[in-house]
Amino acid sequence: MSESMNSKLEDRRDFLKASALVAGVAVGPGVLFYGIAHSRSPEEGASSKQRWGMLIDTTKCAVGCNDCVTACNTENGLSGKTGEQDSQWIRKLNIKHLQTGVEHNLPMLCQHCENPPCVDVCPTGASMKRADGIVLVDRHICIGCRYCMMACPYKARSFVHEPLTEQNPEVPRGKGCVESCTFCVQRVDRDETPACVEACTASGHQAMLFGDLNNPESDIAKAMKTVATTEVRADLGLNTGVRYQGI
């Protein structure tokens, strides 16, 4: 990394600390938080200096708790129905080892790969990865061919099977396009954490940690330096942005 980049990161870090302090002091996070705690101005786009990631501690993820799923549905305007044709951006997955019988509980969502197969296969370029590593579907040019759903190793994508109304203004969704977890990009862009992470923290389980993998001072980078973490389907070499511990 170049000298100037390092110093820039230093600046950013100081700033993040300062804004965290401000946010911490504010009793009602909604009020004081906005307008001040921006790490980047609206004119500034997402930067490859950051890479957003998530660390999920499966030992803390509680059986029967569905708070992350509920929060996601509320934030993104999903119906919450779980039929074969309904969208699910995040789901609770139970896995049980066939020999030992050991069980793990974990939320499964878009893994925001560095080398996402969905982006590779998309014929129009609607499946895309933002500079900061967030994998998104540009619904403006999605033709609804569903090839990305064939390619995703995590079954993270859903196809909108019916016309929708009353969408969340910040999360446009509609019939005929493919969609998936966005890391709540609308929240991340104003320096909030994804809704699922917020809900998991609020529930007291603290199983989900969100942050910048490129920033060595971030909580997530520090945590990943000290514990063993797992990539799902690491054999595919996709370098996922979501990592699990405890499996």
């Binding site: 779980t82 074969e84 699910q88 789901r91 609770k92 997955l93 139970n94 896995i95 049980k96 080892h97 066939l98 793990h104 499964m108 079954k155």
Partner: peptide
């Protein structure tokens, strides 16, 4: 592992 979820895993 055997997998199960609301999403037909």
């Amino acid at each position: 592992y055997a997998e199960s979820s609301s999403f037909f895993d």
